[in-house]
Simulated assay, not measured.
Amino acid sequence: MPYPKAKIYKQGGHFIAIPHTEQPHKERRKAVETENFVEDPPDETSATTVEIAPLPVEESKVRETGTNLQIELTESKTQAEMPKPKRGRTTTKRKLFDELYKTYYSEKKRTRRKLILQALLPYFRTADDAAIFVDKRLRQKQENFIARRIRMTRKASLTNFNYFVTFTYDNALHTEASFKKKLKKTLSNFAVRKGWRYIGVWERSPEKKRLHFHGMLYVP
């Protein structure tokens, strides 16, 4: 490899050299994204928390029978409900796609595409436009995943790991958020202070869905 022409860049604590290649390209223009109003799903618990007010009295008939009073109340018809303003937020189609992709990530590819396409159809003029947008974004997600995997493989190949570990937590001491924060901070401190190297992935167990961390460590 001609080292003087190699492209050298830094990833974390590593320097990586890439052979020089000729790939001329023009600067891409960023498309202006239009914002859309996304309505929030109805709150199912709101129906149980709202108290029903008593119906207004239309008329009362009072009859006197000796010393007793008998009052008969007739209920009026229910009034038409006033139209309520819609609750929602303003966002772009790309951000909405990312939210849906994260929601249906555990589904199979065909099912995931179908669910995302159904949710995005109201924001496009035709079904073909929606399908083109969804397919393009799914293809970009796949390309980004491949790029991250290549970058991870390059970094892992530069280190001779000597331990494979699995970290979990005790419910009496941590929550998911605190466990994740503490473990990341601890590994970062060991890497800076003692020269550790680590790489790993967060995972959930298939049955209990409990969060844990699988990793490989280099401990000098």
Rank of each mutant, 00 (worst) to 15 (best):
M152C: 07
V134H: 06
A130W: 00
D129S: 14
I146D: 04
D128I: 09
L158G: 04
S157K: 02
N144F: 11
R154A: 12
A131I: 07
L138N: 04
D128P: 02
L138M: 09
T126F: 04
V134I: 10
R137Y: 01
T126Y: 05
Q142R: 11
L158F: 03
F145I: 04
K155R: 15
I132K: 12
I132G: 06
R154E: 15
I132D: 14
T153V: 12
A131R: 07
I150F: 02
D129E: 15
A130S: 03
R137M: 14
R137K: 11
A131Y: 03
I146A: 11
D128K: 13
S157E: 12
E143S: 01
D135M: 05
R125W: 05
L158V: 09
I132V: 14
L138T: 00
D135V: 09
K136M: 07
N144S: 07
R154G: 12
D135L: 12
L138Q: 08
I150K: 07
K155P: 03
R139I: 03
A130Y: 00
K155C: 15
T126I: 09
Q142F: 02
A127C: 03
M152W: 02
D135R: 04
D129C: 02
T153S: 14
F145E: 08
K155D: 10
R125Y: 08
R149C: 02
R125T: 09
A147D: 12
D135A: 12
A156C: 13
A156Y: 05
A131C: 04
M152R: 01
N144P: 00
R151G: 07
S157G: 14
K136I: 00
A131E: 06
R137N: 05
S157F: 07
S157C: 12
T153C: 06
I146E: 10
R148W: 05
V134C: 03
R139C: 01
A127H: 09
V134G: 03
L158R: 09
R125S: 13
R149V: 06
R149D: 08
F133I: 05
D135K: 11
F133D: 04
S157V: 02
I146N: 07
A131M: 05
A130H: 00
Q142M: 05
